[in-house]
C-alpha cells in the first residue's frame, strides 16, 4: 500500500516566524506520522516559486512590523497563484500577521494602507492599543469544507461529522494567546466566538475566520499544541483536498487536553459556560 504523503508548504519562514510556527509544524508532523501518514515540509523563502500544485496545506505566520511590511510588499507577485489555489480549496493556516495579510489591506494610524493579498474580503485597521493576553473561544464547528470546481474528485467535510473528537467530554474550545494592534473585520464565518479575550477586533466577540480551506486566527501560543482538534481538522482538510478524505484514529492526547483545560481554568471559564454558547 502506498503511504499518503502530506505536503506542507511553510511560507516565508525567514521573515514570518515570530510566533513559534515551528511549534505548529511539529504538532502537525507528529499527528500525521502517528497515523502512518508521511509528512514533508517545504520552506518557500520570499522570491522563490510557490509550486502550489505540490502542496496540501499552506502555513503563513506572523512577523514583526518591519518584517511584515517587507513581506506585504514582496508578496504581491504571488497573489494570483494563491487566489487560484485557495479558490480550489487548498487549506491554509494563517496566524496573526499572516491572517492580516490575507485581507485587502492593513490601515496604519496615519491612514496609509499596506496592501494585502486580497484572498478574502477582510480589512484590518491599526488600533490605539494592543489586544494582549490569554484567549479562549468556542469553536464554530459546523462550517463545511468542500472542494470541487476544477478538480476531478470532489469531497466534503463538515467538522461536526468528521471530527475525530466524538467524545463529548472533550472541549470544543480553542485556547491560546493573542497580541495584536490590528482590528480585523469581515463577514465570513469566524473560527469561533470569544469567551475571554479580544478576538478579531475587541468588539464583535468573533475570532478568526473560516472560509473554504482558509483558517485564519490571531490565536498563537502556538495554536496547535494545546488544540489537537484544530490540528486534526487541518490534517483532514489537507487529506480531503488530496481527494482522500479519511477518519483519523485517536491519539493519546491526555497531556494536550490537560494543558488546554489548565488555560480554561486560569481564565475562569467553567464547563457550563462553554456549553451554553
Amino acid at each position: 500500500m502506498m503511504t499518503t504523503e502530506l505536503r506542507i508548504v511553510h511560507l516565508f519562514p525567514e521573515l514570518l516566524n515570530l510566533y513559534a510556527d515551528q511549534g505548529n509544524i511539529a504538532v502537525l508532523r507528529s499527528r500525521a506520522e502517528g497515523r502512518g501518514l508521511s509528512f514533508t515540509v517545504r520552506q518557500v523563502k520570499l522570491g522563490q516559486p510557490l509550486h502550489l500544485e505540490n502542496a496540501d496545506l499552506l502555513i503563513l505566520g506572523g512577523g514583526s512590523d518591519r518584517e511584515q511590511a517587507v513581506v506585504a510588499r514582496e508578496m504581491q507577485r504571488y497573489k494570483e497563484d494563491m487566489a487560484q489555489a485557495v479558490d480550489a480549496g487548498l487549506p491554509l493556516l494563517a496566524v496573526c500577521g499572516g491572517y492580516q495579510l490575507l485581507g485587502k489591506y492593513y490601515e496604519l494610524q496615519s491612514g496609509e494602507r499596506i496592501e494585502g493579498l486580497g484572498l478574502v474580503d477582510l480589512v484590518t485597521r491599526a488600533g490605539n492599543t494592543r489586544l494582549i493576553g490569554n484567549i479562549a473561544i468556542h469553536w464554530k464547528q459546523d462550517v463545511e469544507y468542500s472542494i470541487g470546481g476544477g478538480f476531478a474528485s470532489s469531497s466534503r467535510l463538515t467538522n461536526a461529522h468528521a471530527s475525530g473528537n466524538r467524545d463529548e467530554s472533550l472541549p470544543h474550545t480553542v485556547v491560546g494567546f493573542e497580541n495584536h494592534a490590528g482590528r480585523t473585520y469581515h463577514d465570513y464565518d469566524p473560527l469561533g466566538s470569544v469567551l475571554k479575550g479580544g478576538g478579531n477586533n475587541g468588539q464583535d466577540q468573533r475570532e478568526g475566520l473560516q472560509y473554504k480551506g482558509i483558517l485564519g486566527t490571531y490565536i498563537h501560543g502556538p495554536l496547535l499544541p494545546k488544540n489537537p482538534h484544530i490540528a486534526d481538522h487541518l490534517l483532514k482538510m489537507a487529506l480531503a483536498y488530496q481527494g482522500m478524505p479519511a477518519e483519523l484514529p485517536a491519539l493519546n492526547d491526555q497531556l494536550e487536553w490537560h494543558a488546554h483545560r489548565h488555560i480554561l481554568s486560569m481564565l475562569g471559564i467553567s464547563k457550563g459556560e462553554v456549553n451554553d454558547v
Partner: peptide
C-alpha cells in the same frame, strides 16, 4: 512575559 510561545523557539 505573559506569552509563553517562545518556549517553542
Amino acid at each position: 512575559g505573559r506569552d509563553v510561545s517562545w518556549l517553542w523557539d
